[in-house]
């Protein structure tokens, strides 16, 4: 792992929790689009383009209705665009619906990136001491899902040799065959899982507080990035308390004026949202320039090699 993924788990959690909070608090297209752009940039740098494309459709299915429903039912606002079935469609309501859609898409993208960055072992490291049982159940469930899918495929293969298959026959026989497969999966998995549990118990699970071996160390780079995130978050929150970062749509759309206070808040927000992108990009850039023969000094002459991170070397 390299770049943002190689950093301490607490950095990632502060980043994603902060982004989620700001997404739900701030109601301003510039802020939300900046956030989406920063996250997509981060994922593209991490080589996750295909994942984004794969889950886009589902995201839109959920998000688009919000944009459509709002103008049909909210008629507040001063600028009437046109009449639809004798109902005025106002510019403000259309914009509000679009904003809601952007909020939903940003939450979706936050979790997409979160799932890639915060791997289960990091999750366990963070939550095992606060909520050990909930974290363990969640993690075991996570681990069982691909296992059970594989098992179900094996069961289907073997039962297929006996003629028990969900692909052929009448609907009734297919259903009862499907039930046979699921019941086999249930008994098999339960037997196996209880054995796992017994071996956990034999090794002393639950006797004392759970201890864990952690490979994570909060180094200077992590602290520096955490400080940056903290400064950005404080700046953004300050701006929010002053009433900036909110797009006033009702009762009428106010033309957005960018005062210097709002610009300062936006700068703080950019610092917060784009810091991981910077970490990732810098590492990529260092790696590429170190691979180039003509610039051997690009990396060797640099003091403070820790920026590349000892884990990624």
């Amino acid at each position: 792992m390299s770049g943002f993924r190689s950093m301490h788990p607490s950095v990632a959690v502060v980043y994603y929790a902060g982004l989620l909070l700001f997404t739900l608090l701030l109601f301003h297209p510039v802020f939300l689009l900046t956030e989406i752009a920063a996250l997509l940039g981060l994922m593209l740098l991490q080589g996750q383009g295909r994942r984004i494309a794969g889950s886009l459709a589902f995201c839109l299915i959920v998000a688009v209705p919000a944009a459509l429903l709002n103008p049909l039912f909210s008629h507040r606002g001063a600028v009437i665009l046109f009449y639809f079935m004798d109902q005025p469609i106002t510019l403000e309501a259309v914009l509000y619906g679009l904003m809601m859609m952007v909020v939903l898409i940003s939450v979706f993208v936050i979790f997409l990136s979160y799932n890639y960055t915060v791997t289960p072992d990091k999750f366990m490291y963070l939550f095992a001491s606060t909520a050990p049982k909930s974290a363990l159940i969640t993690l075991m469930t996570l681990r069982f899902v691909p296992l059970f899918q594989r098992r179900l495929r094996r069961i289907a293969l073997i039962q297929g040799a006996r003629g028990v298959s969900v692909r052929e026959g009448s609907l009734r026989s297919r259903m009862s065959d499907g039930m046979t497969l699921l019941k086999t999966l249930l008994t098999w998995s339960l037997e196996e899982a209880l054995q796992t549990a017994d071996s956990m118990k034999a090794r002393g699970y639950g006797i004392r507080r759970r201890t864990s071996y952690a490979v994570y160390r909060l180094d200077r780079r992590d602290i520096r990035v955490l400080a940056g995130l903290g400064a950005g978050a404080l700046g953004t929150l300050w701006g929010w308390f002053q009433g900036y970062g909110m797009l006033m749509l009702y009762p009428r759309l106010k033309p957005p004026v960018f005062t210097w206070q709002e610009a300062a808040m936006y700068a703080a927000f950019c610092l917060f949202a784009a810091l991981p992108l910077w970490v990732e990009g810098k590492e990529k850039w260092l790696w590429r320039s170190s691979a180039r023969k003509s610039l051997p000094s690009a990396i060797q002459g640099k003091k403070g090699l820790h920026w590349t991170g000892y884990r990624s070397q």
Partner: peptide, 23 residues
């Protein structure tokens, strides 16, 4: 759940059933 005293068997059972539902 955190407060309750649970056997490992019971924890694993909950996870198995949740995973079956998810699958």
């Amino acid at each position: 759940l955190e407060r309750r005293k649970l056997e490992p068997r019971e924890l694993v059972l909950l996870a198995v059933l949740a995973a079956l539902a998810a699958v």
